[in-house]
Design a protein around this nucleic acid. Structure first.
Length: 113
DNA sequence: CGAATGACAATCT
DNA sequence: TAGATTGCCATTC
């Protein structure tokens, strides 16, 4: 009985296109738990490497990047995003107006209950 | 089974 | 405006 919640999060992230980002809250909402944004963050921390998820495209609701202890620092994550064409505001936050990905309903593949 | 964990988010001071 | 507090919840141990 695999963790359904995490799997749904991973599946959505795996469909996240280059040059786009999503927030933890968006992912939580997409899997049916609007208030589980924090749990989504934990899912990222525990993301299985074999899925090769673009977890650097997941940012906070205000466009801030992951804390210092991830990706070797926000500078690294930022450079990864910039290579995909993501732009940033002058205060160092992701330009969400330009690059926030709208999660399509079919991006969420339901798992047999 | 209860307590702990955590890459959040909204609110308060 | 920045820092601290509170609510939140699936997964771990």
């Amino acid at each position: 009985m695999p963790p359904r919640f995490f799997d749904q999060v991973y599946q959505i992230v795996s469909r996240l296109p280059r040059g786009k980002v999503v927030t933890y809250g968006q992912l939580a909402l997409a899997v049916g738990n609007p208030r589980a944004a924090r749990t989504v963050g934990w899912a990222m921390h525990r993301a299985p490497p074999e899925r090769k998820l673009a977890c650097h495209r997941v940012v906070s609701a205000s466009g801030r990047l992951a804390p210092d202890h991830v990706f070797g620092g926000p500078e690294i994550q930022r450079s990864m995003l910039e290579e995909e064409g993501v732009t940033f505001l002058h205060d160092g936050r992701v330009n969400l107006d330009e690059h926030l990905w709208e999660i399509a309903p079919r991006s969420v593949r339901q798992i047999i209950p």
